[in-house]
Each structure stands twice: as structure tokens, then as C-alpha cells.
């Protein structure tokens, strides 16, 4: 079987292969051995992350958050087999591609997606799923009904687009407000550094997050402010 594997790319902590598993297009995420870290540490981190990823995907399913479907977990070979979206774009690439256009309608589409992201993150948090690595690289856009629209305009047709959250390796289940605050802060920081040409993106997402549900929202906001203050105002010496 390994002969048929085609490497798609090498991410930060795993090699991604595509294959056909039980007749379905499948993505294999192999957390290969990291030689820079101590073997004991490497084994325990890898095992834990495979477990977290599988657990969160299942939990997202019950929460109504779209993720790749989980097909198989293979601890021996450090692999997870999951659904592969052949036609998708990362939110990161979508936003970068937007730069070439100044069309107001396109900006409205970005707002629609920002609202969608805010609502989706809130949905995860309501179910105590902490993603742990919320960046626009870990969000995909896919079509609900596959169309033949050209690649450059297809992703603007927002009524036919769904948001998929991926990469749950750093995720965990926790009820604490602190972890939700950190999760939001990580997202904010990723947006500031990656999409600095859209300075209002996070506030739009955060508004959608807040209005999605009122439960616990005051505590989450104040915890997020705490975490933010720790990062931004920390004394930095030397």
C-alpha cells in the first residue's frame, strides 16, 4: 500500500499523503518521528496528539462543526486516516487572493466568512472543544454542492460555501474560561501577523463569536482581556 502513497505536503508536524481508502479520497496524516526531540518526549507527544485529534473530530461531529470525517487511527504507524477535500481553499489563501481585487462585494463576502468563523469557534467552545491552533491555515472553504464556477470566483459565492475546521493536534477538551480566552488570543495574534492588511478582521469575528450565544460570554471576554494584557503589557527585559 505504501507504494501507492502520494505525498501531498510536509506540514509543521506531519507528512500528508493522499490515497484511496475504501473507495474514498483519503488524507493520511503521519506524525513522523522528530529527531530533534528526546525519543520519550516524541512518543508521548505524538500519541497524545493523535488521541486529541481523533477525539475532537468526533466531538465536533456532535457539535455540528464541520471537520474531515475520521476513517482510521493507526498508533503503530503514527497515522490518522481522514476525509480528503479535493476541492478546497484555506481561508488564508482566500484572503491573500482577495488582495488583487477591491470590489466591495468581495469585501462583503469576507465579512460573511468572518461571521461564519466567529460562530463556528463559539460552537466549538460551547462544546468545550479548545482548538489550540486557530489560524486561517487551519480553516478550509469547501462547496456545499460542487459547481463548475471558475476557481477565482467560486469561493466568493458564499451561499454555496461551508467552513471546515482542520488540524486538531493541539486541541483538547476543557470547560475552563481561561482556555477559551487563550484560544481567542491565539487566533487574534495569527490574524494580526498574517493578515495585517485587514486590521478589523478579528473584531468582526469576535462580534460574531459574542452574538452567537450569550452563555458565559462575560466571563470569556474578561478572561480573554486578561490573557491579552499578559501578552501585550508584559515587561520585556534584555
Amino acid at each position: 500500500m505504501s507504494a501507492e502513497l502520494k505525498i501531498l505536503k510536509q506540514g509543521a508536524e506531519a507528512k500528508l499523503y493522499i490515497c484511496n481508502y475504501l473507495g474514498k479520497p483519503t488524507l493520511i496524516k503521519e506524525r513522523f518521528k522528530k529527531n530533534y526531540r528526546h525519543p520519550d518526549l516524541d512518543t508521548s507527544i505524538t500519541k497524545e496528539r493523535i488521541k486529541n485529534e481523533a477525539r475532537s473530530i468526533v466531538r465536533c461531529k456532535t457539535a455540528g462543526v464541520k471537520t474531515p470525517a475520521l476513517y482510521l487511527v493507526d498508533f503503530e504507524r503514527r497515522r490518522i486516516y481522514m476525509e480528503h477535500f479535493e476541492h478546497s481553499i484555506t481561508v488564508k489563501d482566500f484572503i491573500i487572493n482577495l488582495k488583487s481585487t477591491t470590489n466591495q462585494g468581495d469585501m462583503n463576502t469576507l465579512d460573511v466568512y468572518a461571521d461564519l468563523i466567529g460562530g463556528t469557534v463559539r460552537k466549538m467552545h460551547e462544546n468545550n472543544i479548545i482548538h489550540g491552533d486557530l489560524t486561517t491555515s487551519n480553516m478550509l472553504l469547501i462547496e456545499k454542492d460542487p459547481s463548475n464556477i471558475a476557481e477565482n470566483t467560486k469561493w466568493l459565492n458564499h451561499s454555496n460555501i461551508e467552513l471546515v475546521i482542520i488540524d486538531f493536534g493541539l486541541s483538547f477538551i476543557d470547560t475552563s474560561v481561561e482556555d477559551k480566552g487563550v484560544d481567542l488570543y491565539v487566533l487574534e495574534r495569527a490574524l494580526i501577523s498574517t493578515h495585517n492588511d485587514y486590521p478589523n478582521l478579528f473584531s468582526r469575528i469576535f462580534e460574531a463569536y459574542k452574538s452567537y450565544s450569550k452563555k458565559n460570554i462575560k466571563e470569556i471576554i474578561s478572561k480573554y482581556e486578561d490573557v491579552r494584557a499578559r501578552g501585550r503589557k508584559r515587561t520585556m527585559v534584555g
Binding site: R189, S193, N196, D197, R230, G231, R234, T235, M236, G238
Partner: peptide
């Protein structure tokens, strides 16, 4: 260093902070 722990990359006239410590350096 003793006071800083940051992952930085350059983009559009700024050294932007992609990652850093959430508490001590």
C-alpha cells in the same frame, strides 16, 4: 533571551510577531 521569547517574521515594513511566550521568557 532572559526577557523575550518571540517568533518573528518580516512583512510589509514591520517585524511581525507570530508567536511568543504567554508568560515568562
Amino acid at each position: 533571551s532572559g526577557g523575550n521569547t518571540q517568533i518573528i517574521a518580516y512583512s510589509r515594513q514591520r517585524y511581525r510577531i507570530f508567536g511568543e511566550t504567554l508568560d515568562i521568557a
